[in-house]
Design a protein around this nucleic acid. Structure first.
Lengths: 331, 331
DNA sequence: CTGTTAGCGCGTTCAC
DNA sequence: GTGAACGCGCTAACAG
């Protein structure tokens, strides 16, 4: 039976002694076919191990939905969770899910987008930190227009919205505000914010978190730049360590993990000597007993798909919440 | 310019005052076209924002390569890393990368495979623990035959090889042997293996690791079942905790994380009171200072793609290595 | 109920 | 160098 495949409709038709139209009909199932005929056709399909050709099908007008999820790096847990949401929601809609990584390379991003337009993707969902400037707006607008013209949709995920482009966000600033508030109400006064670009402009992810921190504080506070990596968190906090603060607000859990190591290597305990909070609520937050802000990444991905596959153009904002563990001392 | 898309070759041809054949030629670039003509066509393509239709193209014989990576759950870090490798290698080959998750549901797995055959995927790579029985062999063989018949390829990744199906593995048993040896040579005598099915048959992932443990020990040792989750590691170790062992070999880092929590909640310190090793070398191993076995998941994914896109049918085995950190005490 | 046929958009012989 | 025409596999009218 594993005989030469690439079996076509016609071959099935011949085998079953019917016309191609009839075979097409039993396949689609949306048209009356005599029970006896149907059975014969189904047998032939089985016997020949026939599998329809999407390309021919698409060309003939029945395009299977495809949603593409474009992200910088699937190894980042937050993105992986979002991807999971996208995958599940796509499956629910009977859509195929394409996952493309760009490694943050604009060149590669362009290539990916071109590929996706060629694929006639029903929707493309974009996630990953960005710098919110005019260049960004223009680029997104162009992308969106290109996609829209091809009956597709661009949906922004956890990114600053752009006029006319549907997007789904989470309450980023509010989460930062809440966790800072948590620190303040625990009696902390001097709270260091660990995050922000070590060089160049900042992504909105961190500027929003910083804004929340400052709103809660009521003043600019103390900021130590750090990239969104464990390593950078470690090094940047070390650079600041002689100073006296009673708590550190790391821009992400990963940074918090690095900060924790830095603290420890300086003989400082968490939370006895210094309190620590993070952001994202990754698995490691649980390992570390880290108080952090939970971001519903899976829901974010799921919502993005729903938005993409509907024709709505709203900008929902998902809630974030503080998850209290054991990394904050109360005075 | 964002005017109605779905621009076809013909429209470009009309715009450029040439025939469709000519446009097709400048697009392919593999045929002589007068410089002047070529320029005109290129301008028209730009002006109309023309994007080729893969489906039509595929139907006409120029199929873009597509490699599909089928895995249980993208949230598992090990799989995410493998996916990264697959993605990168696919990109290098100019192939599109499809990522499909099955949630371990056989039903969903079938659906995914059907979808992939419809898509005429050039190759499909399968990862995720399995029970190595006759049913498995038969299923894989059928899948492989179906794919082969359609000019596609099935590649097994980190799974027990099946006759005639190319696969790529890592030295699973050897890694377990090595890390157990490391424990033994550090003076440990009573080492508990934490892993294996809490019910039903075991996947080869864990049976191989258990085999390595036993080979190093020279006898059956002590085994406490545990699923591959943090939670299970915690509970299953707690169930065993009154006993006296000086070290725990957790079947995965995740299990080790759970085990560590269990140890701590019983007032036992790592490594002073009990030593602990894991398997996989996920990020959390670094956070926890966990001595573990490094599995080159990204290379695994990369190698799978190379194997899939070549016509070789070998069974390479990637090396594993012990990463020594601070979770093992030396006597 | 079932068969015939005209495209879907593109690559590719063939002639010119 | 360039154009006209056929076919890839399938769906959707349109006839019977």
């Amino acid at each position: 039976m594993p005989g030469r495949n690439r079996v076509t409709l016609r071959e099935v038709a011949e085998h079953a002694q019917v016309s191609v139209a009839t075979v097409s009909r039993v396949l689609a199932g949306n048209y009356p076919v005599a029970t006896e005929t149907r059975r014969r056709v189904e047998q032939s399909i089985q016997a020949l191990d026939y599998v329809a050709n999407v390309h021919a099908r698409a060309l003939a007008g029945v395009a299977p939905r495809t949603v593409a999820f474009v992200l910088p790096d699937i190894r980042a847990q937050a993105f992986a969770h979002a991807a999971q949401g996208v995958e599940e929601a796509s499956a629910e809609h009977g859509a195929l899910c394409l996952i493309c990584t760009t490694q943050g390379d604009p060149e590669r991003e362009r290539a990916v987008f071109h590929l996706l337009r060629e694929q006639r993707a029903s929707a493309v969902i974009l996630i990953g930190g960005v710098i919110d400037d005019e260049e960004y707006c223009k680029r997104i607008t162009d992308l969106s227009n290109g996609l829209t013209a091809a009956d597709s949709r661009l949906v922004l995920c956890g990114r600053p919205p752009v006029d006319g482009v549907p997007s789904i966000e989470y309450a980023n600033e509010a989460g930062a505000y809440a966790v800072t508030q948590h620190l303040l109400s625990s009696g902390h006064q001097r709270i260091l914010f660990l995050g922000g670009p070590t060089s160049g402009p900042a992504t909105t992810t961190v500027t929003d978190r910083l804004a929340g921190y400052r709103r809660a504080l009521g003043h600019p506070g103390w900021v130590q730049p750090s990239d969104f990596t464990r390593e950078s968190g470690y090094q940047q906090l070390c650079a600041r360590l002689p100073e006296d603060f009673t708590a550190v607000f790391a821009a992400t859990d990963l940074v918090a993990a690095g900060a924790r190591t830095a603290l420890r290597s300086h003989g400082l305990r968490v939370p006895e000597d210094v309190s620590l909070v993070g952001y994202d609520d990754l698995d490691l937050a649980e390992d570390l007993g880290l108080t952090t802000v939970r971001v519903p990444y899976e829901d974010l991905g799921r919502a993005a798909v729903h938005l993409a596959l509907s024709s709505r153009t709203e900008h929902p904002v998902l809630e974030t919440s503080v998850v209290v563990r054991t990394s904050v001392a109360h005075f």
